[in-house]
């Protein structure tokens, strides 16, 4: 996002305060321009977008500026507090070279949060998108085509009933070494983790989408569209999908949080990344026993996860409003 956009959205904040205020209309406007204009009026969405860009830049570009190795141990400088603790506690062990402090083995927290964020964000987004794609596909197909509904839903029941732990262990047994051989240790595990989370978290989306599709399928406008001979494919993409977008958006935001947290659980089973790969969930989990003495170690990763999820949620809200022609028209 450029500076100008931020100012532009700031200008629009007043407008957003009064949703019925007409947005100055221009003659030739693309649909996406409309969507963007509407999106800009959503305070939360703009803030969310801003934060998401910020946290992504922090993790992706951060390590180029802050070149400390996240794995480097420095036991003499362990348990350094973040510099801001010096404000109220002049005896705190702080170090300007470690602005967010260090952990119990002297690893730099800021570098770890950056590196951890890279993995957590990548895993979170990819697994969430995978789950949403599978869930939506199965949900729409089952809801729209009655012939395959039974089969797909019984399949969903089956996956819901499978115990997660043995499933993941079996996946690891079968695929870890081949993936490691063909993609290298890091990429291989990434694929495994993302697939593991993706294929075990699509069922709720599928059931919800199916329920909504079944209801929408019976609405008048669908009947109308069908009566003019709209092919099924067109029906789904033009008429059904846009109307089930909002539960999908909710699933997506919740799914992102679930994926980031599940990843940290996986690493404890030995299915996730090796212990020397930090992720937000893992930093948080490792720090829980020491949270009274070093609250920052849980607060920083915890906030990173929460705020990311929150901003994605607001962006989702904004997008949904922006994509809904009924609201946009107002």
């Amino acid at each position: 996002m450029t500076d100008r956009d931020i100012h532009a959205s700031a200008d629009n904040l007043e407008v957003a305060g009064n949703p019925v205020a007409p947005i100055p209309a221009e003659k030739t406007r693309s649909q996406w321009r409309d969507v963007w204009d509407q999106f800009k009026t959503h305070k939360g969405a703009v803030l969310g977008l801003f934060f998401l860009v910020f946290i992504t830049l922090f993790c992706v570009a951060g390590p180029w500026i802050w070149t400390v190795d996240p794995g480097a141990l420095d036991v003499r400088n362990k348990d350094v507090r973040p510099i801001y603790t010096a404000i109220w506690d002049s005896n705190a062990k702080v170090n300007w070279a470690r602005p967010m402090g260090t952990d119990n083995l002297g690893r730099d927290q800021m570098a770890n949060l950056m590196q951890g964020g890279r993995i957590s964000l990548a895993v979170g987004w990819t697994a969430m998108i995978l789950a949403i794609l599978i869930g939506t596909l199965i949900g729409v197909l089952a809801g729209y085509f009655r012939a395959i509904d039974g089969l797909l839903m019984r399949f969903t029941d089956l996956v819901l009933a499978l115990p997660l732990l043995p499933l993941l262990l079996v996946m690891m047994l079968l695929f870890r070494d081949p993936l490691r051989a063909s993609f290298g240790p890091e990429q291989g595990i990434f694929i495994l983790v993302v697939t593991g989370i993706g294929i075990t978290s699509w069922m709720q989306t599928a059931r919800i989408v199916r329920g909504d599709v079944m209801a929408i399928k019976e609405r008048e406008f669908v009947l109308a569209a069908r009566s003019i001979g709209t092919p099924a494919r067109r029906m789904i993409t033009r008429h059904i999908l846009p109307n089930v977008l909002s539960p999908i958006m909710v699933s997506a935001t919740l799914g992102l949080a679930v994926a980031i947290i599940t990843e940290s659980a996986l690493s404890f089973l030995g299915l996730g990344f090796p212990s020397d790969f930090p992720t937000w969930g893992k930093i948080l989990n490792d720090s829980v026993p020491r949270m009274t003495r070093f609250p920052e170690r849980v607060i920083l990763p915890g906030m990173a996860i929460s705020l990311t999820v929150l901003s994605v949620n607001y962006i989702g809200d904004g997008l949904r409003d922006a994509l809904d022609p009924r609201i946009r028209g107002m």
């Binding site: 794995g71 141990l73 036991v75 083995l105 404890f268 030995g270 212990s275 020397d276 490792d286």
Partner: peptide
Amino acid sequence: STNDVRQDFQALIKE
């Protein structure tokens, strides 16, 4: 095996 202390040891020994 997975265990907080062992993972700390692994990190140190790796280093």
